[in-house]
Design a protein around this nucleic acid. Sequence first.
DNA 1: CTGAAAGCGCTTACAG
DNA 2: CTGAAAGCGCTTACAG
Lengths: 340, 340
Amino acid sequence: MMATIREVAARARVSVGTVSNVLSGAVPVSKRLRERVLAVVQELDYQPNQLAQSLKSRQTKMIGMVIRDITHPLFAPMMRGAQDAAWLQNYLLVMLDSDRQLEREQQILAALRTRRVDGILLAATGIEQAHVRAICEAGIPVVCLERELPGLGIDCVIADHFEGARKCVAHLAACGNRSIAFLHGDTSDWIERERFGGYRQGLEDAGVEFDQSLQAGDHSGSDEGYRAAAALLDRRPRPAAILAADATVAAGLLRAVRDRGLRCPHDITIAAFDDPFSCDVLRPRITAVSQPSYHMGSKAMEILLKRIQDPDRRRSTVTLETELHVRESSACSAAGSGAA
Amino acid sequence: MMATIREVAARARVSVGTVSNVLSGAVPVSKRLRERVLAVVQELDYQPNQLAQSLKSRQTKMIGMVIRDITHPLFAPMMRGAQDAAWLQNYLLVMLDSDRQLEREQQILAALRTRRVDGILLAATGIEQAHVRAICEAGIPVVCLERELPGLGIDCVIADHFEGARKCVAHLAACGNRSIAFLHGDTSDWIERERFGGYRQGLEDAGVEFDQSLQAGDHSGSDEGYRAAAALLDRRPRPAAILAADATVAAGLLRAVRDRGLRCPHDITIAAFDDPFSCDVLRPRITAVSQPSYHMGSKAMEILLKRIQDPDRRRSTVTLETELHVRESSACSAAGSGAA
DNA sequence: CTGAAAGCGCTTACAG
DNA sequence: CTGAAAGCGCTTACAG
C-alpha cells in the first residue's frame, strides 16, 4: 500500500542509498538525481517507514506520558506543556491513561518499553513499584511528576506545596482572619503533609498560635470532607477561615457551607488547593493555591530530553512555585477583592 | 542496554529462530530447550523489540487518537472508552492533542503515518482537509467521531443531536413550559443545526407553535451567549424556558440569569447541551442533553478494529442516543425533581 | 557523487 | 524438533 524506498529508487533509477541520501541530506547528491528522486517521492507520496529508521538509529523520537487519570483537570495543562516542549525538539508525545489501575499502568509501561520509546514521563500512581524500576534498569530515562521518587535516582518535577500553603495562610491572615482551620485530606500523603507544614509555618509567621481543635479530617473524598467540614463549621466560635487540603474535601466543604445556609465570604472565608472548581460559573469563586501544571509538564519534558542527550547528567529535583489565586471566597479589603 | 534475541540465543545455546519460536508459541519446541530459553529470558529481562516485530509483521498494534482539545471534558470519557476497547483486543491506544491548531493536527497525522499505526481515531478539527485524505489514501483505516465526513468514505460515530433536542423539549413542555426559547451557538455548525431541528420537532410534537422571536444568538462563546441570553431574558413576557445550544452559550446564559437576580428554576427554566458544568458543586445543577462520550469512544474503536480486520467492510455511520439528565434547573412536579 | 553491501532485531518458511 | 537463511525498510560506511 505505502511506497517503500525501494520502489522510489527503482522508479527514479537510482540506488536506495541515493534516495536515502537525498531525503536525509546527510550526503550531497547531484542536483539531477536529487530532483528525479524528489519528483518520485512526491508522485508516490512516499513517507519513510519510521519503524525501519528507528531500528537502525536506535531512537524512536517518541516519548510516552503515563497519566493516572486523564479526566482530572490537573493533567490537561500538564500534557499540553509536555507536548509543546516535545514538539520544539521534534519529539512526538503519546499520552496513555492508566485510569488509576496499577495493572493497566504496568501494561502501559511494558508496551512503551517494547516499543522502545526514548523516554517516559510519569504522572502515575504506583511509581514506587517494581515495574518502574525495571524500566529504569532497562535504561529508559524517566522523569517523575508531582512527587519525588525514593531510590530510583530519577529526575522529578514537583510543586512547592509548603510555600504555597504558607503564602495562602499569609493572605488569609492579612485579611484579618485569626482562627484559620485546616481541613485535611489524605494525611498519609506527602503532598498533604507539605501543605499542612506550610499552613503551620504561615500561622507562625502571622503570630497566630497553632490550635489543634481547628484541624479536622484525615481522608480524601467529598463525603469525608463534608463530615470533617461540618465539625469545623459547627464549632463555636466558628473558625473565621477554612483551608481545604485538596479538591475533594473542598467540594465537601462547599456542600457543608451551603447546607448550613452560610454565606461565603460573609460568614466564612474559604480557600483550597488545586483550583478545584475550574467551573467559571460557580459563585463565589474559590480562592485557590494551584500547581503550575503547564510549566510542570514543559519542565519535565525539557529535563527528560536533556537526560536523553546526556544519560550521565546529574539527577535533579525541580521545585516549581505554586500560584495563589485570590478570589471572592476570601475577599477582604486588605487584599483587594481580586477577581482574576 | 536492552538484550536482543541474539544474546538470548547465545546464552541459551540455541538459534535465534528457536528463541522466537519459544516466545511466539507458534512452533512447538522441546521442553528442555524451552525451559533453557525462558530461564535466560527471565535472567536478562528480555523484551522483544516491537519495532523489529512490526517491521516484519506489518502491524504495530498501535492506534492513534487525535483529540482536538484535550482540556475539553467531552473527550476524557471518549478516550477512556476508546482505550478500554483497544485493550480488549490487545491494541495500544496513544492519544495526541492537536490543541485546536490545524498545523499541529497535520504534524500529528504525519507522525502517526510514518510510525505506521494500524488505525486512527479522529476527534479533530480540520477533518475535511487534504491531510486526512492523504491518510486514507495511504490505506490507514480512520474512524471519525462527532460528525460525519463527506466524501472520504470512512466510518463515523456520532450522537443523535436531533433526537436529544426533541426529547429535551418534550420534557420542558411536559413541565408546563409553553414559551421555550432556543439560544443558538454556532449556527453554521452541523451539530447546532441538528439540535435546532430537534427543538422545532419537539415544539411541533407538543403542539406549540414555533416563535421566531424566541430565538437568539448565532455564535458560540460565553460572551456571545451572554448577550443573546440577555435579549431573551429581557423580553416581556419573559420566556418560560431557555434551551442553550452548546456549553459556551450556556455559561453566558447562566451569568445573564444571575446578573438579573433571576432564580432558577423558580423564575426561569434552563437546559443545555453537552453537560457543560460537570462541576458537582454548582447549584442549581443544570438539566442537560449529553453525548454518550464513553460509548462513542468504545464504539469507534470497535469499528476501527473491525475495519483493520476487514478493509473491505461496508462503510457505516453509527448514531448513538444522547442522554437527558433532568436536574434542578428544570425541576417540576410533572417530571419529578430528578436529581440524578 | 553513486552504488553494492552489511546490519538494525525480529519472524518465517525450508531443510535436515 | 532445530538451525541456517532470507527478508521486513531503512542507514551508513566503503569502494569506485
